[in-house]
Design a protein around this nucleic acid. Sequence first.
DNA 1: TGATTTCCTACCATTTTGGTAGTAAAATAA
DNA 2: TTATTTTACTACCAAAATGGTAGGAAATCA
Lengths: 132, 132
Amino acid sequence: MKISTKGRYALIIMIYLAQRYNENRYITLKEISEKEGISLKYLEKIIVSINKDNYLLSQRGSEGGYKLATDPKNYYVYDIITKSEGNIAVTTCLNASFNCGKKAKCSSYRLWNDLNGVIIDFLKSKTLDELI
Amino acid sequence: MKISTKGRYALIIMIYLAQRYNENRYITLKEISEKEGISLKYLEKIIVSINKDNYLLSQRGSEGGYKLATDPKNYYVYDIITKSEGNIAVTTCLNASFNCGKKAKCSSYRLWNDLNGVIIDFLKSKTLDELI
DNA sequence: TGATTTCCTACCATTTTGGTAGTAAAATAA
DNA sequence: TTATTTTACTACCAAAATGGTAGGAAATCA
């Protein structure tokens, strides 16, 4: 029952970018890596998964890096976590591909589904601007 | 971000016992194993961890098995899950042993702590009698 | 042109998950 | 007393997930 370092570090990256949104510059992973004490190579891998669908602005080369594409209030923790960790499913039996043949009448299933909803609602209620 | 089969199967066992609480008999793991299609040996291992501090009544030998010690309404899903899976900590940084030196002023930490609270509150609000 | 930085792919050690196997101990039935 | 049943306990193990590392290609700018 854990969010892995992928999700945790993803949020750290995004908070770092959000705190510097007003500076309006590209921020390198090297900077984040040094300030947060996380391996550069690992951050690279994580931010690539966050950045699918151009969730961020990025630029290569010197003076390059990453920055938020829009105001921190438009970034939901839910999106950050699902982009880095995949969809939230608190048990394997919540996945559509899981087939035990008794979902509808399974009281465990309903419980896990409700818990999943509670978690998703919480994460959807939080945006980056609330965290900085 | 998953509850493992330990916790899932633990709840299945407990719901099975709760549904038969009125029969007032010891129920064998063999019966649960066959009805729920889960390996007997694995269920044995799981129920041992649930049964610490005599959470259940158990008896060896023929006519033996397990039964609830008290009414289903006194069994909280939270206890079932923590006994089978260990304490709920949605990130490793919530563990007391984790020391990054900035918990108090870390906004990620507060977020994860709040999420953890939401999950714990949910699980503490559910008892076995609501599930049967 | 050289330095910088993202982008992309492949690999790998360690830990966790999801079990299996075997046996001892207790309780009951025959 | 003996055989059977069932929990209780300990050890082991394969497969998957986690948490990275490594190397290089492709942009971009000074």
